[in-house]
Design a protein around this nucleic acid. Structure first.
Lengths: 250, 250
DNA sequence: GTTGACTTCCCGTATAGTGGGAAATAGAGT
DNA sequence: ACTCTATTTCCCACTATACGGGAAGTCAAC
């Protein structure tokens, strides 16, 4: 099918405006469209309140209807939506699956994932929940809880999932401290034998952790020899980029 | 000038989608457009990431580019932008000016206002700041501060602006309590003789007060005889509507 | 398998968008 | 105040572009 030209162009303009407010001729330059075309499109966008004028002058910026539409997206969907392109980028770079988790009581709930391109890959956990102490995302969440909440968590029974699962409160406390320092957590085969995983926090504008970004793969190839830190940095970097995207928003 | 049809229609679709995600035929029904047209527009919107498909199926919802564009709007502008239509509505109903304030230290900073249609009207305070204790918006902000912050505020010197200005800490404390109970504050000629004003809080998703909505007018006609409560309710209602619009957003 | 609801695709038509250029307006410099 | 330039607004003839009816394809339920 063929894309509707005026819509493509209109969104091109909106995209420019989301970087900087601008006038007609400036937009004409950046988009390469004739001024008359830009003027007409802006007029239409203004009528639909997708853009508004700055102080009555002919300097345009993103308008109310865009804000309203975006606010109709619920927080989880919003996180997913904002993260989507970053997830794709991460999977491309690492070659392993990347996903998002949100806290749900004492569990991490997985809300989305992009699978690795490898033929051998880990099942998609989207829609399921796992206890916080066995997955790196969980440790990340715990690391941003108040001490007393963490203590309450540690008092409740912690199941062992594999021989390597750490369930000792003192060891978990230690991991939490480390998570705060490093900004990421690696766990090796603690949830399931043969799976390694790394996670980093995603923050909202207020600095609260609203979700986690993780990447995981089969332990025989992930992480590759002495690549742990490189991978972790990449994951943290992507997580910040996602935070940034959610970012400025109220 | 004539509005570009496809843009108008595209935003009609986006508007529908911001209420509910939907498929092609449903949108065709709600917008009154032929399915082929809806399909083509959606295809274009999808390519620009203004919409995305829910789970790969052909159920569409608001997409990443809308969220990204909205997040590029800074919080103050965002508040203004989101509030604009509500402000207009309020001015229409009350016939008096309505405006927005944000906290700035111990002052309220006015970021926007729509003037009353009356020939006799109050000057536009946009861009200026006033001490919290003399304007109702200020009392609203104080009412949502922690006790100790309020006490610190009350310890700093409070200027008198008119004979009616209340500067006694105990009276201000009392007003703060009342503000919390009622959700609004009326002040009569405390900032300037001949001006009465009422304000209510605007909250973000997390329940924090990010701004205030106020309405003010000359004391000889505002508030009209025994209309105080009606007006206050209207202002509170509008403030909630604005909170709602900012609302769900992260 | 059959039915019905929905989506995708095709293609002829003409409407609706386009862009060049002129006119009007705003802004900067002297 | 006046000129010169940059920018926006308006007009209009042209045809590229969006349109929508309808057919074909897909999917799900029964």
């Amino acid at each position: 099918m063929k894309i509707v030209q005026s819509i493509e162009r209109a969104f091109g303009i909106l995209h420019e405006l989301s970087k900087n407010s601008a006038g007609i001729s400036e937009l004409s330059r950046t988009t390469g469209l004739p001024t008359s075309t830009v003027a007409r499109l802006l007029y239409s966008l203004e009528k639909t309140e997708a853009v508004e004028r700055e102080g009555g002058k002919s300097v345009y910026r993103i308008g109310p209807s865009i804000v309203t539409m975006a606010s109709s997206v619920n927080p989880t969907q919003r996180l997913l939506t904002a993260a989507q392109p970053h997830l794709r980028g991460l999977v491309e770079v690492l070659g392993e699956a990347a996903g998002l988790g949100i806290p749900a009581g004492y569990d991490v709930h997985y809300i989305g994932e992009i699978d690795s391109p490898h033929p051998i890959q880990i099942r998609d956990w989207t829609g399921t929940s796992l206890p916080m102490h066995i997955v790196p995302s969980g440790i990340i969440f715990l690391a941003h809880w108040p001490e007393e909440a963490v203590e309450a968590f540690l008092r409740h029974p912690l199941d062992r999932f594999t021989p390597k699962t750490v369930i000792s409160p003192s060891e978990i406390r230690h991991r939490i401290v480390e998570a705060r320092e490093k900004g990421h957590v690696w766990l090796f085969e603690e949830f399931s034998e043969g799976i390694n995983s790394v996670a980093a926090p995603i923050f909202n504008h207020a600095g609260a952790v609203v979700g986690t970004l993780h990447s995981h793969g089969p332990s025989f190839r992930f992480p590759a020899e002495s690549m742990e830190d490189v991978i972790a940095n990449r994951v943290m970097q992507t997580a910040s980029a996602i935070s940034e995207t959610l970012g400025h928003t109220q």
